[in-house]
Write a protein that binds this DNA or RNA. Sequence first.
DNA 1: CGGTATCCCCGTCGATACTG
DNA 2: CAGTATCGACGGGGATACCG
Lengths: 230, 230
Amino acid sequence: MGTAYGQFCPVAKAMELLDERWTMLLVRELVMGSEHFNDLRRGLPRMSPSLLSKRLQQLVRAGIVEKRVDGTDVRYLLTPAGEELRPVVEAVGAWGARWIGEIGDRDLDPKLLLWDMRRNIVEEATPPGRTVVELRFPELRASQRRWWLVIGPDEVDVCDDDPGHEVDLVVTTSLRTLTQVWMGLGTWDQARGAGQITVDGPAALRRALPGWLALSTFAHVERGPHVVRV
Amino acid sequence: MGTAYGQFCPVAKAMELLDERWTMLLVRELVMGSEHFNDLRRGLPRMSPSLLSKRLQQLVRAGIVEKRVDGTDVRYLLTPAGEELRPVVEAVGAWGARWIGEIGDRDLDPKLLLWDMRRNIVEEATPPGRTVVELRFPELRASQRRWWLVIGPDEVDVCDDDPGHEVDLVVTTSLRTLTQVWMGLGTWDQARGAGQITVDGPAALRRALPGWLALSTFAHVERGPHVVRV
DNA sequence: CGGTATCCCCGTCGATACTG
DNA sequence: CAGTATCGACGGGGATACCG
């Protein structure tokens, strides 16, 4: 790992493992349930594959992650020690949600947002059969303007080009608005009331939408004054 | 801070502030109550003063630390946002105490151990007047072999050379044993029973010692299998 | 899908010295 | 006590290409 701190303190020893760039975010992805290399990549799009590979090896060596190979299927699973990092990730995320000020445009990413949303969709609350939701961010450049969530009976897909299915719901908003709603800063209904989100489609589907589109893990953290600059 | 992650996730935004080397340990020192530059240095002896200065400035800019200058007196205090990092430090330390395997010889440091002990001494439980405890680590080289804790009526001093006062108690042990007791791996009495610690001096003082020499903040964490290698 | 290999730059950090 | 100044190396990590 990084150079040792030369301290016996448990905080120091733990941070020798955790303070390298990307490591905590990788642990976050594992805690959130991603197991495959390319799924981890989707949650960490700015991390190079070689660095992801290196970090995974470090965590395996440390005893935090188990690499389970089953034929062609490779999974990275948290060991019990790794699973117990969940409270650490939660404490960090709760602090961030509570104190970090407004996020910059550089931190908005439609692909990442959709991927996060995908992970939290409440399958039991989705309509039977297949539901296709199109998301439109008119302010973005063409290649990032339209996205599709294909909520099948058994799985959810995120597409950045038209999957060809008939669209059931069209959500039009700004990327910032949807990100903020997802993070729990203002509610879906507030944003709709303010005209910042419009939803087109059958009334039943529109009403049901907030029921299965669960928000971020940290959406319900009680907020502080958001004074921290980062 | 370090390069941005380009993610809106609160974990990512928080780690942009916290994942640089030394930062979490500096926050630990502040959470533990150190306020002066040179006190912070004592808790972070391998950190260069310029880097400490830089990190403090970063934390001040971020809104986590307040630099309060009062004449010649300079103090670094946690803001409310910084104070709320305490649960993060505790989660990290608890995880480390529970899972990190045996610490290496490189992580043992008598000066740091005594400084940590000094901070946790229960002043109300110390004997009235001045008590001088000499600690002996026979296995260390001469310059690190003898230490003195001078527990005055109002303050506690750590000395690495003879303060000249009459010594009330002499504790002889190995640095590793004392560090492990301090961290909660085995008790004072167990170590004494095993002949790994001897205490010489008046019986009343010997009996009282464990009462005012409080252990590490993380000594009472329930331990796991200590399988993590770092 | 699941990674490795390579290359090179730039920034961090460590070391040391020095000052008000 | 409370820091700044300087400087060099080293290696982390970003980018890119490529393989099984």
